[in-house]
Design a protein around this nucleic acid. Structure first.
Ligand code: MN
Ligand code: MN
Ligand code: MN
Ligand code: MN
Lengths: 223, 223
DNA sequence: CGGTTTATTTTGATGACTCAAAATTTATAA
DNA sequence: TTATAAATTTTGAGTCATCAAAATAAACCG
């Protein structure tokens, strides 16, 4: 039986939650899952137990949850649909990159395999979505790249913005207005612990200083 | 509060059901609603009472149900989304006209107003979908055309197929394979009561004889 | 008209998903 | 190492949408 939208959202949240877990930790705490999904903690517990019954996750009471192989594949396919839809909406439909996330959040549950493959083809089998997030393949495999954030990258080195890990519309518009979208050249000039900020030199030598919290959401790569 | 997919499907089914009611009858019987939605009759009764509470329908026990003005508008907007999506999938995505109905059945509940308006624009504000069904406007108004079926149209008169009122994929493929899609020229040569059939002359003077049941699903207009 | 068939409604129950608040376990820190 | 705090689970309840089967109303017919 095919998974409900609810189940798909849980699997996706676990997948994304697991991926930002500190090294060595393999279990996503229920509290984090609950807040990622904006549901009560008790609801998460109940649902995760049901997911464990279906063999989609492993659940260790009081410790957390992790995807099984089959759960991970399902989650990756939801993510594939989400990201292909986002890119399609930007490239083909001409929507802005800050408005496609919410749209894709719904569409990811209803677009058919046929339609998704058609989008993939029209887009030329892209590897990343408008935010630089990697698009899993039709089998759920994903190319994982190790990217530095603006907090961890080398200083005074030519770099390229590669990925933005926050879907908040206001944040995305801010990024865009300062020419910090994926693909833009960038250089970190300075970091200051005390003021909790990072100074960036962007396109046309424009300077801008942003907070460390925002800086951690911009991933960069060598040009 | 926005209507659930279930509510949207009920409203749409009532809308479509009302439109095929015999002249003078204004109430859709619960049995017809139930079978249109493939649900148990008792379920229809319960849900319709709830819809009546919300002011979307009027319900007369043992007689049936009819949409209120607000219910009708909502239903028309669902239909607008359904039909614009169908046309988009055919025209832009290159899907076949026999596979878009099922797809649209899901998408109609999740595509946003913004996305729908974008599709409308890309398609040049079309008036009909791939099956010739009229597309309601953004306010839910619909242009109603009185069309004859192959059972009621004049004989030996040049006509054009304008609408196909059955979404069954096998039926649609049959129609297409015999060049009877909307837009095709056609002429009814004969009707036979006894054999329950209609003989058609189509493109390139090709002849084909179909049953009365099938003939009633093809609507035609003067060229 | 009265009996039978058909359509509709009512009843009782279930599954999926959710919450608030109480109970419990684990972590923290004095 | 015990008290306190934080995270998690359990409990009890509610909503939405559904079904099967019993009860009822309406329609049909000889
Ligand atoms: Mn979602
Ligand atoms: Mn994205
Ligand atoms: Mn539908
Ligand atoms: Mn159609």
């Amino acid at each position: 039986m095919l998974p409900s939208s609810t189940v798909e959202n849980y699997l996706k949240a676990i997948y994304l939650g697991e991926s930002v877990l500190p090294e060595g930790q393999r279990l996503l705490p229920m509290g984090q899952l609950a807040s990622a999904l904006s549901i009560a903690p008790g609801t998460a517990t109940t649902m995760v137990k049901a997911l464990a019954e279906s063999g989609l996750v492993e659940y260790e009471p009081y410790n957390g949850v992790r995807l099984t192989a089959s759960g991970e594949k399902l989650a990756a396919l939801v993510l594939r649909r989400h990201r292909l839809v986002e890119l399609f909406l930007v490239q083909v439909m001409g929507l802005r990159w800050d408005e496609v996330h919410d749209e894709a959040e719904q569409l990811e549950h209803v677009v058919s395999d046929r339609l998704i493959e058609r989008m993939d083809e029209m887009l030329g089998y892209p590897e990343v979505d408008p935010h630089g997030d990697p698009i899993p393949g039709p089998e759920g495999t994903i190319k994982h790249r190790e990217l530095a954030t603006l907090l961890t990258c080398p200083l005074h080195t030519p770099l390229v913005v590669t990925r933005v890990t926050d879907q908040d519309a206001a944040f995305l518009r801010f990024i865009e207005s300062h020419h910090l979208k994926p693909g833009e050249p960038i250089e970190v000039e300075a970091r200051d612990e005390v003021s909790d900020s990072v100074r960036i030199k962007g396109r046309d030598d424009q300077r801008i200083t942003i907070g460390a919290r925002a800086a951690s959401k911009l991933l960069v790569d060598q040009p």
